[in-house]
Simulated scan of single mutants.
Amino acid sequence: MSNEETMSSMGELLNEYDVKKLNRGEILKGKVIDVNDKEASVNINYAFDGLISKEELSVDGKDPRDVVSTGDEIDVYVISPNDGEGYVELSLVRVLEIKEKEEIKESFKEQKNITVKVKEETKGGVIAYYGNVRVFIPGSLVSRQRIELSTLVGTELEIRITELDFRNKKVIGSRRVIEEEEYNKNKKVIWDSLIEGEKRSGIVKKLVKFGAFVDIGGVEGLIHISDLSWERVNSPEDVVKEGDSVEVFIGSVDREKERLSLILKDVTKEPWTVHSEDIKEGDLVEGKIVRLAAFGAFVELFQGVEGLVHISEIADERITKPSDVLEVNQKVKVKVLNINIKEKKIALSIKEAAETNKEYVNYVDNEEEEGTSLGDLLKGFKFN
Results as ranks from 00 to 15, higher is better:
Gly154Val: 06
Pro138Lys: 09
Glu179Trp: 11
Lys169Trp: 08
Val189Pro: 11
Tyr130Leu: 04
Glu156Asp: 03
Val171Met: 05
Arg160Thr: 13
Ile137Asn: 05
Tyr130Val: 00
Val177Asp: 15
Lys170Leu: 13
Leu164His: 10
Ser193Arg: 02
Ser193Asn: 02
Leu152Val: 01
Val153Tyr: 02
Val189Glu: 15
Leu194Met: 09
Asn184Asp: 03
Gly173Ile: 00
Ser143Asn: 09
Asn168Cys: 05
Glu180Cys: 07
Phe166Ala: 05
Val135Ala: 10
Ser143Val: 06
Glu163Pro: 08
Glu182Leu: 11
Lys170His: 13
Glu163Thr: 13
Glu156Met: 06
Lys188Phe: 03
Asp165Asn: 14
Glu180Gln: 09
Leu141Ile: 01
Val135Pro: 13
Arg175Asn: 07
Asp165Thr: 02
Asn184Tyr: 14
Val142Phe: 04
Asn132Pro: 02
Leu164Lys: 05
Arg176Ser: 14
Lys169Asn: 15
Glu148Asp: 13
Asp165Phe: 09
Ser143Arg: 08
Thr155Val: 08
Val133His: 03
Ser140Phe: 10
Val171Trp: 11
Leu149Tyr: 06
Glu180Gly: 07
Ser193Asp: 02
Leu141Arg: 10
Tyr183Gln: 10
Asp192Ser: 09
Arg146Val: 12
Asn186Asp: 13
Glu181Gly: 11
Arg134Met: 07
Asn184His: 12
Ser174Thr: 01
Ser140Glu: 11
Val171Leu: 04
Ser174Ile: 01
Glu158Met: 05
Ile147Thr: 08
Ser143Cys: 13
Arg144Trp: 01
Arg176Thr: 04
Glu158Leu: 07
Gln145Glu: 11
Gln145Tyr: 10
Lys170Gly: 13
Arg175Ala: 12
Lys170Met: 11
Ser143Leu: 13
Val189Ser: 14
Glu182Pro: 04
Ile190His: 12
Ser193Pro: 00
Glu182Phe: 14
Leu194Gly: 05
Glu163Phe: 15
Gly131Asn: 00
Leu157Glu: 00
Glu163Met: 10
Ser174Val: 01
Ile147Cys: 10
Ile178Lys: 07
Gln145Ser: 10
Asp165Arg: 09
Glu181Ile: 04
Arg160Asp: 04
Lys187Arg: 15
Phe166Asn: 05
Gly131Tyr: 00
Lys185Pro: 03
Ser140Leu: 06
Leu141Ser: 12
Val135Met: 09
